[in-house]
Design a protein around this nucleic acid. Sequence first.
DNA 1: ACCCAGGGCGTTG
DNA 2: CAACGCCATGGG
Length: 226
Amino acid sequence: MAAPLAGDLSLIYNALLAAFGHQHWWPAETPFETMIGAILAQNVAWTNAAQAVRNLDAAGMLDPHLLAGADAGEIARLIVPSRFYNQKAERIREFARVYVAEFQADPAAMAAVEAETLRKRLLALRGLGKETVDSILLYACGKPVFVVDAYTRRIFSRYGLLPEGASYDHMQRLFADNLEEDVALFNDYHAQIVFLGNTICRKSPLCDRCPVRVIGGTLRCARGQA
DNA sequence: ACCCAGGGCGTTG
DNA sequence: CAACGCCATGGG
């Protein structure tokens, strides 16, 4: 594996943006919906998580106070499509309780907390791991935290920029060390990776429609070089 | 009838 | 730390 060239990550983003257009993440109406969506999206297709969000909304339960006081079984019943619904119901209720008790159910109050402090606090909650917490930090709180995931590992190991068994921290460091700290960039870059991952590059190792490929050990982008 | 999705936890070695 | 099993839906 060649040492990551400093410009590769920007080159790849430019190619993805040129090919796919801005992704406009997170697909939610409010910061709180984003937070709940991040939990519901754990290890499940987004369409399933989205259905669970719609069910909560339709039941009038997409509310921090109501979720904090709800019966876990009542939440579970509404989020069945999200898979692992019993676990996720507990996680959502506990998160809602903390959101109300410590952040006054106010996204601005939460976003006012220093990023690393907030990250540690959320990571201490059961069911909130690094990817979920970082998604909340970036997409709900506007913190400059790069979110990485299984798609990131699959795609960037394919480009030769990460080993196949790269850890979350290792992956995150690659982006933090080689990109300008920019919330808008971090937001759309991760969204582009997910889009690429669950559409055209799902199966074939280097599908012919991928805007980014490796030729003779060198990274090439079909569009967006600069 | 398979396969796997925008993970995380608890338990082992 | 890594490797496992567990959780337990729905679309391709």
